[in-house]
Amino acid sequence: MIDKSFLRWLDGEEGYGLNTELKDNKVNSPAKKSKADEKEQLSRFNKIYGGLAVAISVLMVVILCVSIITFPTYGSVSNPANNEVVERYVGSAHDETGAENVIAGMILNYRGFDTFGESCVLFLAVCCVMQLLWATDDKIKAEGEKSKREAKPDLILSTCGKLIVPFVLVFGICILFNGHISPGGGFSGGSVLGASVILFAVTYGSKATGRFFTKRVFNIIRISGLMIYAIMFGVYIYQGANGIQSDLAHYIVLVIDLAVGLVVMSTMYGFYSFYTKGDL
């Protein structure tokens, strides 16, 4: 929402903004402003605004380029970022988390709370999108139903989609399950899985997806993903964390990866579904 004071500044009222020209205009003509006057003011404001925007961009380039000079050398071992924390993570990630992919081990084990927050952000985002785009109005809903019934999947798209969908699905599952020993993990695997479900929906029509991905399944998946994450990580922390005295440590990364992947998948499909139909 635009601030009220910004609108007043646009009108050139006293006490709002710094544009003296507009202010003078207001003072000199106490009568009601004509339409042409307003138009002229708006165009003048746009000119000043454009000039200021370019000036700010150029200033930003100069400031950032000056700060580049003080940066440490690119790719050097002696950079301040390459300190003992990195050595600790790389050196003991395999023994403590059981993950060969250090990044997966790091974000799901050492920094597990951070990733839990991320999953919650995704959860909240899909909740917000749901609230904003839910087709509550009966009229809108009826129109949506009508268009949904009328819209057939495109022939070229569905032919191509039938070829691709199984491979994308298998590839997503592969990324998800190999996240701890190769590049990949919950977020990337979940996105590919979500993409495959979206592709399934556009290929076979949303009715086919509605057969297995109902509203109930959607809610169960996204909530149970977060719950699995919270319970597993809570138990892990309670048992002593950092792999000490814990048998859980060697497969916690895989399980949490799966939970994150479920959350991401349902979020991706939820976004698609709410943007296209306003409903699941």
């Binding site: 495109d154 070229i156 798209l157 191509c160 070829l163 691709i164």
Partner: peptide
């Protein structure tokens, strides 16, 4: 080759 022509067509 499979996906991009479909995208262009759509």
């Amino acid at each position: 080759m499979l996906t991009n022509p479909v995208l262009t067509h759509l």
